[in-house]
Amino acid sequence: MMTFFLSPLPHLRAATALMVCTLAGLAPASAAWAAPYTATHASNRGNNGPSVTFSAEQVTHGAQIYAGACAMCHGADLEGGHDVPDLGNYFMARWANTPLDRLAGYITHAMPLMAPGTLPPQDTAALVAFVLHHNGVTATSNTPLPMEEARQAKIRIPAPQALAAAPASKP
């Protein structure tokens, strides 16, 4: 069995397809070794301010933008690499409790690295929704994540709540 290194595109398409199927409520099968550690962001309230909302459409759109503009460096699974920051666990730890406008602003000004400033606000908001969703953050409603900086500033990125009791996984 050989792996072909022709183009990263098939991976990206696969990632998008996976996202769509997750949104449709079809949980992808996952093997025991990698039970996704997501049930930890359950509470997305309690840090003084409105809770995060984003729409399923934003997540889907964000996945497309991600595949085209971000996955090349950050990886099809947002895993990053030795020299590239991940957008998973470490990312959430770095950004937890930060106002959302900082993240959106950073993406707008600095990303993608090879063409900063090229993402319109709706794409940036969609990307943020996609990344939060990928990290197990659940939206409290289907209201889209706002694009305006002033409204984003009132929302804080939820902290992962790994210390909360979660069902024990058996080997």
Binding site: A31, A32, W33, A34, A166, S169
Partner: peptide, 17 residues
């Protein structure tokens, strides 16, 4: 050796993560 590969899960035991 584990047939499913190494175990890298998170579990809550004895009040610890």
């Amino acid at each position: 050796f584990r047939p499913a590969g190494p175990r890298l899960e998170v579990e809550h035991v004895a009040g610890k993560t």
